[in-house]
Design a protein around this nucleic acid. Sequence first.
DNA 1: AAAGAGAATTCACTATCGGAAAATTCCTTT
DNA 2: AAAGGAATTTTCCGATAGTGAATTCTCTTT
Lengths: 204, 204
Amino acid sequence: MADLSASPELPQVSPTEPLSTIVRRLRREAGLTLSELGKRSDISSSALSKIENGQMSPTYDTMQRLADGLGIDITDLFAGQRRQSTGRLTVTRHGQGVRQSIAQYDYEMLCADVRRKQFVPMLATIKANDLKDFPNLVSHEGEEFIFVLDGRITLNTEHYSPMVLEAGDSCYFDSTMGHAVVSTGDAAATILWVCSRIVAPLSE
Amino acid sequence: MADLSASPELPQVSPTEPLSTIVRRLRREAGLTLSELGKRSDISSSALSKIENGQMSPTYDTMQRLADGLGIDITDLFAGQRRQSTGRLTVTRHGQGVRQSIAQYDYEMLCADVRRKQFVPMLATIKANDLKDFPNLVSHEGEEFIFVLDGRITLNTEHYSPMVLEAGDSCYFDSTMGHAVVSTGDAAATILWVCSRIVAPLSE
DNA sequence: AAAGAGAATTCACTATCGGAAAATTCCTTT
DNA sequence: AAAGGAATTTTCCGATAGTGAATTCTCTTT
C-alpha cells in the first residue's frame, strides 16, 4: 500500500485524505498516544494502530466512539483538512476595545479587527441589577463562557436556578438556553465573556 | 465541582436520529428498494436490511459505498449525529479548576467537566522566563485568545516580532502559527487562555 | 553502549460484519 | 380469500473488525 502523498510541506489540503491519515493527525494534534486515546474512546490501541495504518476499516460504532474520544464531531473524521486562515494575530491594549452599549450591559469587544473568529471575546460591565431589566431571556446559537473579573453577578437561565458568581468564578453553557446576567453586588460587575458562533458584529 | 445536569459519562441517550433510520429514510426518499440500492452501492440487500434494522454497524468502507450509491456526501449519513448541545451548564468556582502542569506553564482547566466544548477556557500561570525554555514553538489547529490578568508576558510567534502584554491587554491569533508565552515581569504572570478545537484533558 | 521505559505494531484468537440463498412478509390481482 | 411475485428479513457461513498479550521500535538515562 503505497502512500504517495507524503510531502513534508505544511497543511496540505487533500480532498482525498484517507481516514487513516486524518485519525493520526487528529490524535497527534491532541497530543495523545494510542493507548491514551484508546482509553478515552474505549477502543484497543491495537485497533487504533490498524486504523491509522489503513489495515482496518472501522465500523460506524467504533468511529463514533473514536470521535467521542477525540472530542470532535464525527463528521470531522471525513472532512479532510480544515481550511485554516494564515497566521493572523491582533492585540487589543487595556481599554482599547471597540465599545458598544445596550440597556443591560456595556461591552468592549476585544480583538474586533479580526473578523470571522471561531469565538468572540469581550469585556462586559453589567448595568442591569434586576431580571426585570430584561424584556426576555437572551438565546442564540453557540456556546458561551463567563469569567468574573470584578464584582458579583447572578446568571439567570431557562433550565437552572439562578447562580451567583463572584470574582474568579467561571461558567460555561449552551447559549441556546435562554440566559441573562445581572449584577448583584454593590459595585459594578465586570466579566470576560466569550461566545462562539457569533456573526461578526459591527463595522462593514 | 458540581455538574447538575449530566448523567455520568456515557449512558447519555442522545436524542439524535440513529444511522438505521437515516439510511431507511434516504433510501425511501430516493424511491429505491433494498436490492436496487444494493446494486448501486455494491452492498448486498441483506446487509442493507441489517443496517436499516440496527442489527449491524457498517464499516467505514461500506458506508462510503452506501453514500456513493445514494449519491450523497458521506457526512450526510450523520445528519442526525451532529453536535447538538441540550442546555448544559457548568460552573467552576475560583481555584477549583482541574490542574495540569507542564514545564513552561501551570494550567487550571475551567469547566472541564463539560466535554466537546466549542472552545476551551483555562487559567495559566506562566513559569517560563525565557524563550529558551521551549524546545520549539507550539503549534496546533485552531485559534487562540489570551487575556492578561496579572503580570507581564511576552508572546513570541513565528511570523511577528515578540509582543509584550500587560494586565488588561489581550491578543487573538491563529494557533497554527508557532507560538510561546514567557513571563517578563518580576512576579509570575497569570493569563486567561482560550483555545478552540482542543481536546479537553480527561479528569478521572 | 547497555538498560529501561514507553510507544507502536504484530500475533493469535473471538466477535461480528457482510454475502448468497432460503424463508417470510407484503403487496397486487383475480 | 387465495395465488403469485416482489420486497424484506433471516439463516448460515466465510471474511474481517476488534481484543489482550507478546514483540518490536524509539527514545532517554546511566
